[in-house]
Computed example of a mutant assay.
Amino acid sequence: MTKIYEVDSWKAFLDLVESEALRGWAFRGQRDAEWHLESSLTRRLRMFVPADQWADREQRAIRVFKRKAHYFLNDTSALKDDFRCLALMQHHGAPTRLLDFTKSPYVASYFALQSCTTPAAVYAVNTPALWHEATPPGLPQMTRDAIDPRNSDSLSRYYLSNQYPIVWPGEPWSMDRRIVAQAGTFMLPGRIDVSVEQLLNEYEYEEPILAKIILNPEIRKEAMEALYRMNISSATLFPDLDGLARSIQYELEVSWIGSSGPRK
């Protein structure tokens, strides 16, 4: 079951994510605590596509991207690696089954709080336990190495087939600038017709696997000021002109005049 924490102060959040309970976990910030832990692909398909067509539509989307993306790339090697290709699609805004996570709870809190007006959430996944246990109990034939999407044909067999109740944590062998800047990683689900939370809670693992930290929106001001001083902003998390432009959203809120730090 998902462990729920509710925090009402920035200090309480820091104490929690720096505790032994969540050490080494991966984190994902979502600005609405009511949102499920599911991919952009799942949300898009649910809105517009009959469920029996999801697998075909996903595979077609990947084929279309591969056929056309080479026009915009100096290095097309990512298009020959299915997992890297999915990461590239995700990077540029295509709906994919990947869920962005980060190894930094501070980065996750930034994504949760930057635009929130209601309770936000940071999800935490016990990636060391998930990695070592590899697959849920009851699927012993599917070893960690067998389901590694970086291996030839594994992504197609174990993930795009949309049959297996597995979640794989990790990154492509070759990472882009945004993944590096965000201390990023991914959760790759073997099914997109259910949420990642459901997949992780379907089996009893030896250790706790999933936690949800609900953030009171009243902590936003203090948290955003602290993150600004930690040099965590859209300008640093998206190290390009798009990131700089996004960072102006928060620059509109802050002023250094007559203050020891950012203030409204």
Score class of each variant (00 low, 15 high):
F27K: 14
R144L: 02
F111D: 01
Y5A: 07
A55N: 11
D32K: 15
C116H: 05
T143F: 04
W256T: 12
Q198A: 11
G24N: 12
Q249P: 14
Q163S: 13
L155E: 12
F238E: 09
L99E: 04
A12P: 01
L88S: 07
T96N: 10
H132S: 14
S195R: 01
N162I: 03
I219N: 01
D176K: 05
S233F: 06
R220D: 15
D52L: 08
N74S: 14
L155G: 08
V64T: 09
A87I: 04
E58R: 02
T143P: 12
N74L: 12
A26R: 12
L98W: 11
R84C: 10
N201S: 15
G170C: 05
I209A: 05
R46D: 14
G93N: 04
Q53C: 06
Q59A: 12
S195F: 09
W168V: 00
L16W: 03
R31S: 15
A181C: 09
L16T: 02
R44V: 03
A235W: 06
Q141W: 08
A235Q: 04
P239K: 07
W173K: 10
S109N: 05
A69L: 04
L139Q: 02
D176H: 07
R28A: 03
S156C: 11
F13T: 01
A134Y: 02
L199E: 15
E20I: 07
V180G: 06
F27T: 15
L79E: 04
W35N: 10
A108G: 03
M175F: 07
T102L: 06
G29F: 08
G190M: 02
P149G: 02
S115I: 02
L237A: 04
W25D: 00
R43L: 08
S255P: 00
S156L: 15
V49I: 15
E171N: 15
T2Q: 05
A26D: 11
R150F: 06
N151I: 03
